[in-house]
Structures are given as C-alpha cells and as structure tokens.
Design a binder for these strands. Sequence first.
DNA 1: ATATTATTTTAGACAAAACTAAAAAATTGT
DNA 2: ACAATTTTTTAGTTTTGTCTAAAATAATAT
Lengths: 220, 220
Amino acid sequence: MTLSEEDYIKAIYHLSEFNSKSVATNAIAEQMKTKPSSVTDMIKKLAEKSLVNYKKYQGVSLSEKGRLVALSIIRKHRLWEVFLVDKLNFSWDEVHVVAEQLEHIKSDALIDKLDAHLGFPKVDPHGDPIPNKDGVFTKSVKKLISELPVGSQGVCVGVNDSSAAFLKFLDKNKISLGDTFKILEIEEFDESVTISTRSGSIRISKQIATNLFLEIVDVE
Amino acid sequence: MTLSEEDYIKAIYHLSEFNSKSVATNAIAEQMKTKPSSVTDMIKKLAEKSLVNYKKYQGVSLSEKGRLVALSIIRKHRLWEVFLVDKLNFSWDEVHVVAEQLEHIKSDALIDKLDAHLGFPKVDPHGDPIPNKDGVFTKSVKKLISELPVGSQGVCVGVNDSSAAFLKFLDKNKISLGDTFKILEIEEFDESVTISTRSGSIRISKQIATNLFLEIVDVE
DNA sequence: ATATTATTTTAGACAAAACTAAAAAATTGT
DNA sequence: ACAATTTTTTAGTTTTGTCTAAAATAATAT
Ligand SMILES: [Mn+2]
Ligand SMILES: [Mn+2]
Ligand SMILES: [Mn+2]
Ligand SMILES: [Mn+2]
C-alpha cells in the first residue's frame, strides 16, 4: 500500500466512524484537502483492491479488509503519539503531525517492539483507544460535556478536537486528561457550561463543551 | 526534498566518502538498483537544485549544500539505528532496513529529542560515527584487520560490510564490537588471519579481515 | 413535474520517478 | 590512429497521484 492509499483509507474510516453510513466523495476531498475528481480516481483504485465497497454516485464504505488496514494505521499512529509524549517529552499538541508520517513506516517487528517498550498502552495522549494487532479495541463509554445534564460528574478522558489550537487552549486553562469535573450549571442562552474543578469553578463555552469527553462516575 | 532525492544524495555521499573524486552514473545506478538513464534524470534535477556539481559525461559530486543534506540523513539513519538496538532490542543486523525508512521522517524537533533521549551517542550499532546537527563528526582512526601487521592489537570498533549476512556471521562466531583482538599470524597463501580473542584464537578468512575495523592500542 | 442546484464522474493534462531502446561521447586495445 | 567497447545521455513510455473543465447524475425547490 502506498502512503496516499493509506491516508485515504484512514480518512474514510474516520468519516464513517460514528454514522457508519457510506461516505461522500466531497467529504473525503475536504478531509484529504484534494479535489473530488482526485477522490473518485483513488476510490476506484481502492475498490479494485477490494479495500472499499463502491458503486458510482453511491458513496463509499470500507470493506472488512479495508477496516483492518485502517485500524492498523491508526494503531501505529497512536502508538507513535504515546512514544513521542512519554519518551521524547513532546507536548500533546505537537505529536499529530509527526505521527502522521511515522504511521506509514512498514515493519511489523517495529510496531510490536514499540508497543512492548511503551508498556502496551490502551489509549493515546488524546484519550483515543489503541487497537491491538488484530484491530480490536474497547471503545470506552464517554460523553461530551455538552451532552450531559447538570449534576453529572466524571473524569476527563478524551478530546473530540485534537487540533494543536484546542490542545494549547486546554493547557493554558489547566484542563488535562484525568481531571475530575462536575457540571454545575448550563446557561440556556449560549449553552455555555459551568464546571467545578479541583481549583474552583470555570465557565466553558459551548464549543469547548462539545470537544471534551467525560467518563461518568456514578454518584449515589 | 523527496524520499528518492534523499536516497540519491546519500548514495552519492557514500560512493565518494573515501576516494572524494566525482562519482560515475553507472556506480550510482548500481547502488540505487536503478538504470543509468534514471540516474541521469535525477542528477539533472539535483543539479538544478544545486545539490550536486554536474557536467555532462563528467560524473557528479556533492556540493557543500548537498554534503550537508547527506550528513543530515545519515545522522537520522544512525540515531534511529541506535534507538532500535538500545531501546527496542533489535539486533544489529535487523536495523538497517527499518532505519532506511525512518531516516526520511521530517521533523527537526523529533531528531533532536531522539538524540537527547539516547544520550547523544557518538556511534551507531555498527561503529559508524553520528554527525551532529551541523554535520560535524569525528572519524576515528581505525584500520581494517587486513591492513595490519602481525603483532598489532586493538579494539574492534566497526564493520566495513554491514549486511545482515555478515553481521549474523559475526554473532554466530561471537565477534562483537568492543572485543580486543591481537593479530597472531597472517597466512600468505590465502591471506587468512589468525587472531587471539579472550576465549582463545580463531582464524578468519581474508573476506572477514577486510570487513572488520580495529582501533589500535599501542603496546610498548 | 420539472427546473435549478449540488454532487459526482469523466476526459484530458501534468509532474515525479521509473523504464527500454537508441544515439552520442568517452575510453580502451591494438 | 582508429575500431571496438563501455559509459552516458536522449527520446519516448509508463505509473501514481494530482489538477481543471466539462459532462453526467442526483437532490432540491417551486
Ligand atoms: Mn499519514
Ligand atoms: Mn491522537
Ligand atoms: Mn532511505
Ligand atoms: Mn549503521
């Protein structure tokens, strides 16, 4: 598989991760920063290799084979991200661009030994799960802050947006994975949310609330 | 710079590492496992970018700019090799193929942090020196066993051939970098050499003797 | 129901990096 | 010196991944 094919497969995976329906040509073009015509060309090639299911004008979805390829690339991407943060002291907002390259290195031995070296991590620095060799991973039950009612309490376990800009914003505001938050108030007008933290309470905008995942702690 | 351009630059560097003269098109083709016509095409592109000095039919040599590019790639290659052996427990005969890919990852921060993580190593697992950020490295005074007279003694510090086949041969015969050898006898007929080791003495063929470097220890 | 708009595909072109076959230049042997 | 051989370059293709412009299809709105 070429680097470009791998990136397309990964893009299709991410675009169908939640809705599971077939993915539109335009959506892939936007994600990949290419033109729709380029996408059509590539889709045909991937269909030829039976990595995707494709019928003209009907959008595209990953075949089982394609899904496994996607998960193998995602596994590599996230393991490298853990390496960069844990071993090389990168900050979590810097690792994505580098992992985007490292994920394409071809060596099964390398990725297995890296996994072992890192102590078989289950999640990457952004809280995303790391599939095992066979593409199996546990998607934890986590909810966006914006989806939770007042009174909910949980541990921050992931980000929805992992852009450098958002991650830097979180650092600046001393919000980290592992922090425990409680939802104190939801402002109807702008859907901003007031949450309590160890060091007091802060108000976060709707945009922030839709990009932070909590793992709920049942409080009786 | 593309991956392919980088590999050509590195090939030219290695071909002119010792003789320093201009390198022949055919020699590059052989090294790169491509055809001479492909080499000519690439050389023109590299000359266009002033990475090489080129006059038709006159061979090619690296410009100062090209030399620095070569050394930066070699630095990355060797640092990754150290990482693979020291941190991931690869054996020294397995690392080259993987480093051949890793050397092309583009991130200055990555290579600097990797260097620090490894403790700023001076040589790679095959005894080859690692250039610093500015392309500076100390080439140690080392001699091939085949170039030394009877009675010489030294520490094995490098290999001339770093193919997996040769390195596995050395492992099998319990020859490692760091071992101290003394040259006991040189057989005129086939130029095989008898050397003494900690565990006794062994005879090595001319082919082996021309591929092991010793750093001489003066014995008075 | 059909006209308008949006999406997707096709057709044709281009740059990168390789190839084969043929031509040109340099080297070698007598 | 010059014919034969070797090396290098040129010319013309191919494959991969991109593009623009135009055509085809699907979706939407009146
Ligand atoms: Mn990528
Ligand atoms: Mn991540
Ligand atoms: Mn390489
Ligand atoms: Mn090496």
